[in-house]
Simulated assay, not measured.
Amino acid sequence: MVRIVTSETKVVEVPFNKEQITKIFKKHDKDKNGKLSFDEVKAAFVELKSSWPWFRTKRGFRHGDNDGDGYINMQDEELEHLVDYALQCGYTTK
């Protein structure tokens, strides 16, 4: 008697949570100045596998750059607003 065992593996996509997305954005503060530039935010959206990272970055700055200085300040609500926007985009991880 021959016994054949098969296993099927399903890849399940799970939405990123707030802490994971926050960590991704903070990781992209390459110059460690506590602020995210346009290019740093764009790099984070690339890591999140955005289809349109430039567009998402522009929208992210509309949501997060409250003082209009061209940076997302990571020490106040600007980063929180950017993260909330990214969560609304529905990025997932495998």
Rank of each mutant, 00 (worst) to 15 (best):
M74N: 05
D76F: 09
N33F: 03
Q75R: 10
K49L: 13
W54Y: 10
K58D: 02
K58G: 04
A44E: 01
E77P: 01
W52S: 13
R56C: 14
S51V: 13
D65Y: 03
K35Y: 11
E77W: 09
E40C: 09
G68P: 01
F55I: 15
L79N: 03
N33Q: 10
W54T: 15
F38W: 04
S51N: 11
R56M: 14
P53L: 08
W52G: 11
M74A: 08
D31Q: 10
L82D: 00
D31V: 15
S37A: 11
N33M: 08
G64N: 01
E77K: 13
A44F: 03
A44R: 03
M74C: 10
N66R: 09
D76V: 15
I72R: 01
N33A: 11
K35T: 15
A43N: 08
T57Q: 03
R56Y: 14
L82W: 00
H81I: 03
F45V: 13
F38N: 04
S50C: 09
E47T: 15
K58I: 15
V83L: 05
E40R: 07
D76Q: 10
Q75H: 11
T57L: 05
V46F: 02
V83T: 13
V83I: 14
E77C: 09
T57Y: 02
D31F: 07
A43Y: 00
E78H: 06
D65V: 13
R59G: 01
F55G: 05
V46E: 10
F45S: 06
E77A: 14
A44P: 02
A44Q: 02
V83D: 01
S51C: 06
V46Y: 02
R62P: 00
V41P: 00
M74H: 05
D65T: 12
L48P: 04
D67T: 14
S51G: 14
I72P: 00
M74T: 15
A44T: 09
G64V: 05
M74K: 04
H63S: 12
D39H: 08
G70R: 05
A44N: 04
F38D: 02
L79P: 03
K58V: 15
F45Y: 11
W54M: 10
E77G: 14
W52M: 12
S51F: 12
V46A: 10
S50L: 08
E78F: 05
F55V: 15
L48Q: 05
W54L: 11
A43I: 04
K58N: 09
D67M: 06
P53M: 07
L82C: 05
L36H: 04
Y71D: 05
Q75F: 11
N33L: 08
S37H: 03
K49R: 13
L36D: 01
D39P: 00
E47G: 10
S50E: 04
N73A: 14
L82V: 12
D69M: 08
P53G: 08
N33W: 02
M74D: 03
D69E: 07
Y71L: 11
W54H: 10
Q75W: 07
G68Y: 01
L79Y: 02
R59S: 10
G64D: 00
D69R: 06
L48N: 06
E40G: 09
R59D: 02
D69K: 10
G64F: 01
F55E: 07
G64K: 02
K35H: 09
E80I: 15
F55H: 09
